[in-house]
Every structure is written in structure tokens, then in C-alpha cells.
Design a protein around this nucleic acid. Structure first.
Lengths: 337, 337
DNA sequence: TTGTATGCGTTATCAT
DNA sequence: ATGATAACGCATACAA
């Protein structure tokens, strides 16, 4: 490994001079600086991030908190897409990305401690239990954080537009003549609450009456529970004409149930997903769904976090809502009224 | 941030004593050591990984190389599962995981340089172009590496048992009476080569004649190309009775094509996937497929890399093959002969 | 058993 | 414009 010292010897100048030249400080002669830079390049010099971090107290490294509680965190395309764009943007801005967790080796530490231990300049928090005291401790600490799809007081967060998404879906379905719309939602999270609220609000605005039995619970990313909910809906005396699913993947459960009962999509039943993952676009009939712009969410999260890290004085917490778009497929039938 | 110095002052002993006590060195009095440990705990002491890394020359941090060339690297459940188990195992062994890439900030560096810059103790390489000179440079460097699904000379790698997997599939299909078996394979990689070779070998062993037109190319994770290939197979004068797909997700393309032609699975056509992702298990009929044990692969990769890092002298390169299992679904019809 | 001193590779302050 | 030096937090060889 070639260090500043090696270069200083090679150049016949002091270590300090080399450091300044390489960092472009103005108090080094043009000529000397150029010479030093050329030698450094020739010798294949690379700064040592560790030494730098120790000296500067900042590591140019951000943490990512991504708990795989249901062991489907990363498996979910929504999150893996966020993770990827987050990584790309962070790297573009000169930051590396390290996973943060509890229990690293023998040490049992919480997220905050882990982040401190690694000298993370900031942490992006996604797909965790936001009620976890350890998560709260991290968020309330002095470490800059950005949360995804959840808001803490005086903290920056990037949110998918669940209210707008659900509104667009309901309106689209309404425009296609549907008045009996059922909604199978995911487990109780703030995301789910927003979607449910938006569902009811939009229905009310459109003058649609929603029987209680039309709104039922399932689990995200779990086709089985959505299949069950579908079966229940189909058993109602007055069947809905359209079913909204928690997400595209869960819809598979509904798809199976419908097929088993000999019902075809969209002729006998209209369906809508959520997420806009690859799968939704390759199913036939193509699934009508609402695409969440995960790529933008990850990118913004990284950019906002790094801005907060680099300009701590001028920083103010922000709530960024990333809008998505309705992807029209062929799973919603147009009903003449 | 509480440091060794703070503790030493609080305890009225020297910094060195604190360091030794906390690291459990034998040359500190039982009593003193216990006292120091209790004070450290009370003060909330956490070692500084950065300082430690600088001092020890080892960071307890491993890199992961995961290039999203087709921007589906992470989206592919196979890889996201590997990534997750890799992370879990590494953390269990006391190592953090950091993404490695080219171009971090203004610095344009190759993978090797990035790994050195971050002081990574080792790197796991997956889902990249293994012909990339930058990858080769990293692998041939002094940095310990483990590659996934690709072998370099004198280097450790963890391989999915593609030969065994394909063999099991062909045998299973054969046992169900099929003699006209088509194989749609992915783009040309070493994985694909192994599967193709194993396909032919097993067919030969079983005395199955494989017309050239039965083996055709598509692209992994791309239903469109597999759909096209399916259409071509269906247009043959002598149709196969069973089609093997590159992977479960690609099969969706074939599924659509079959349905469009009014063919039902498995009555009119038997099909087999590869991977054993969640999707394969929720489709109806359930897809018969070969599950790759991605969880084990990630775990082994981490364990082997860390073993190599910690016991460099006794280390010898290993080729670990992780076997999978045939998941019997209902997509292969049993044909009476 | 405990303390002193040094250095890991940097950056930054203060002399020169 | 350049250099000597201290400091970041830690581990360790060596002295006491």
C-alpha cells in the first residue's frame, strides 16, 4: 500500500506538502503540486478511507437499515429497487453503503450503536418496525436519518404517494363503470392506513357506498391470505364487480381463486394490483396496477440524507412524496351503466 | 463519544490498562479488569471501528460485488436471497457488509481499488461479468475473494449444482413418461453451459434423442424471449411434450403463450421451471421446478470468505457445490407409454 | 500487574 | 510556499 509518506520520500518533500497538494489546497506551488500529483498517480496512490475517517470524524459511509422480519424484505421488488437506486446515487455522491443491524459478532448492540461503531455519517431506514424502540432511538439520535414510507417528527422522510395512488385507482375503476368495489388491504401499517383512508374518501367523493364486508384484511406479499379474502368476497350475496389487491404479488392468490371458481378476468371480475412490479406487466391479461416509483424513492432518500450530512446548518426536515402512475392493463372491464 | 481515554480518567488507570482489560488480555488483575468493564458499560463505551481498523489493518468489513448490469441483479429473488443470507451470516461472525462498485464520487476507481480504499478484508463476487478485466484484477489480487456460480483458478467459489439440478429435472420428466423434451436456456454464461451439457448428457444416458430444434436460447428473467421460444417450439411439426424453462419467472412468458394457443398445463403441455422462487409455489397449477438453495449459498460464501480472512495460512481454495431439490408441482403430466 | 510510548495514515495548525 | 508536529482512537511492545 502506497501512503503519503512513500510519495513524500519519492518527491523529496514533506508528507504535509503531499497531503495539501493532493487535496488541492491553495498554498502549494502550482509546479510542485502538479509534480506531486503525477508521482502519486504513477505510484498508484489511493487515499486510505479509514485513516481519513478517523481524522475527519466522517466516514463517507452511510448505513442502510433493512430488516427482513418476514424474511421477504429484500425479496420484495419494491425494496430491492429502492436499495439499488439508493446505492447508485450514494456512490455517485461519493458515499459507500453498509448494512446496519443489531448483533454484530459477540457485541450485542442496537442500531444506534452499530451506526456509531461504524462511524456512519447517516442512515436510511426502510422496511422495519418503526415502533421498535431501537429504531426510535436511532431516529432521535444526533445521526442524520431518512425514513422511507414513515414519518417521524422533525425528520426527513421519503413517502410513496399512497393516498394519491389509491385515489387514482378508485377513480379509474369508477370511470370504467364500477360501483361495487372491494378492497383487500395489507396488515396494519401506516401505509395501509393511508390507503384505506384514501379508499373510503375517494369512494365517498364519488358517491359510492362501500359495504363493510367489501373491505377485508390480508397480508402483503402473501397470495394465500389474499386468496382467502377473495373467496370470502365471492361468497357474498352481492358480489363486488372489482377487487383491489394489497399488491401485485398477492394478487396471484386471487387469480388462482378466481380461476378455480371458473371466473375469468376481467369478464367475470375486474382486479387491480399495487406496486407495478415486473410480474404485473407480464401476466396475461396484463394487470392494471399503480406503479410506485421505487427508483426515485431510493435516489431521493440518498440525496436528501447526504445533503443533510454535508450541510447540517442549513438543513431543515423535509417530507418528500414521490408520486407514481397508474399502469393500465387489461384486468378491469369497462361496464356500461 | 466515549473513548478509552475517558474511561481511563474515570477509573484512574492508564489508557493501555483499559484497552487490555476490555480486550480480555490476561495481564490485568481480575479486580481491576472487572471494575474497568463495569465503568465502560456504565459510560456506554463502544469501540471505534475506524480507529481499530487503522491500527489493526483489518476492518471487519467485507465487500459485496453485485453489478446490476441488466438492472435486475437485485430484483432477482435468487440474488436477493443470497445477499440476505450472506449479510446475516457475516454479521453473525462480526463482519459488516459494504457494497463495492466502480466510480465512488469523483474518484474513478476499479473494484480492487475500491476494496482497498475501504480496507475490505475480503470480497464476495456475485452476478457480474466475470470476464470484466476489473473483476479479474480483484480476483487475482491479494484480497481474499469468494465467487458465486463461477470458478477462478486457486480461488474459493460457491456453486449451485446446475449439473445435478438439470439431471434431476430430466430424470423426473423421463420417469413421467416424457421422451420429447425441449429446453429453453438462458444467455451464454458458465451456468448456462453447465445446464446445457447436463441436459444433453442426461438425455443421452436415458437414450433420449434430442432434435436440435428442441434446444433454443432465450434470456434469463425475461418472459418475452421465453414466450417467443415457446411459440417456435409449438410450431414444430413434432411438438415436444415437455418444455424446460430458463427460470421460473421466464416461464410466465411460456404460460401466456400456451394459454393464448388454448393449451392447458399440464394436460396439453408439461412445463418445468428453475430456481424455486416464491412465485413458482403460488402459481396454479403449481410449477414443478428445481429449487436452488440460495440461502445456503450466501451463508457458505460468507463463512468461507471469513475463514479465509481469519486463517490465511491454513487456507486452501475450495469449490463448494450447494445442492438444491426438485420441487414437485402439478405442471408435469404423467404419460402412460 | 500496570504504565509509557509509539505508530497506523491522515489532516490541520502553526512555524519557518 | 513548505515543513515540523500534533491529534484522531486504538493496540501493543517494552519498560517499570
Amino acid at each position: 500500500m502506497v501512503t503519503l509518506k512513500d510519495i513524500s520520500i519519492e518527491c523529496g518533500v514533506s508528507q504535509a506538502t503531499v497531503s495539501k497538494a493532493l487535496n488541492g489546497l491553495p498554498d502549494i506551488g502550482e509546479e510542485t503540486a502538479n509534480y506531486i500529483r503525477s508521482v502519486a498517480k504513477r505510484m498508484g496512490y489511493l487515499p486510505n478511507a479509514t485513516a481519513r475517517a478517523l481524522k475527519l470524524g466522517s466516514s463517507h459511509n452511510i448505513g442502510i437499515l433493512f430488516v427482513d422480519k418476514t424474511s421477504c424484505g429484500l425479496k420484495h421488488e419494491y425494496f430491492s429497487e429502492i436499495l439499488n437506486s439508493l446505492k447508485v446515487e450514494a456512490e455517485r455522491l461519493g458515499y459507500d453503503v453498509t448494512f446496519i443491524s443489531k448483533d454484530i459478532g459477540q457485541f450485542s448492540m442496537d442500531y444506534y450503536q452499530h451506526a456509531k461503531y461504524r462511524n456512519c455519517d447517516g442512515v436510511v431506514i426502510a422496511s422495519v418496525d418503526f415502533k421498535d424502540p431501537d429504531v426510535i432511538r436511532l431516529v432521535e439520535s444526533e445521526i442524520p436519518t431518512v425514513t422511507l414510507d414513515y414519518t417521524f417528527d422533525s425528520r426527513t422522510s421519503v413517502l410513496s404517494d399512497n393516498v394519491g395512488g389509491m385515489q387514482e385507482i378508485v377513480r379509474y375503476v369508477y370511470q370504467n363503470g364500477h360501483r361495487r368495489i372491494a378492497f383487500i388491504h395489507g396488515e396494519d401499517t401506516s401505509v395501509t392506513q393511508k390507503r384505506i383512508a384514501s379508499f373510503f374518501k375517494t369512494c365517498t367523493e364519488l358517491g359510492i357506498r362501500v359495504p363493510e364486508s367489501y373491505v377485508c384484511a390480508a397480508i402483503y406479499h402473501d397470495p394465500r391470505s389474499s386468496g382467502l379474502a377473495t373467496r370470502n368476497l365471492l361468497a357474498l350475496p352481492e358480489r363486488p364487480t372489482c377487487i383491489l389487491y394489497p399488491d401485485d404479488f398477492s394478487f396471484i392468490g386471487g387469480m388462482n381463486e378466481l380461476e378455480q371458481q371458473g371466473l375469468s378476468i376481467p369478464d367475470d371480475m375486474s382486479v387491480v394490483g399495487y406496486d407495478g412490479i415486473l410480474l404485473s406487466q407480464v401476466l396475461r391479461p396484463k394487470l392494471t396496477t399503480f406503479r410506485q416509483d421505487a427508483e426515485t424513492m431510493g435516489r431521493k432518500a440518498a440525496a436528501l440524507l447526504i445533503e443533510q450530512i454535508e450541510k447540517p446548518k442549513s438543513w431543515i426536515p423535509q417530507l418528500i412524496t414521490v408520486s407514481g402512475e397508474l399502469l393500465e392493463g387489461h384486468s378491469v372491464k369497462s361496464i356500461r351503466i
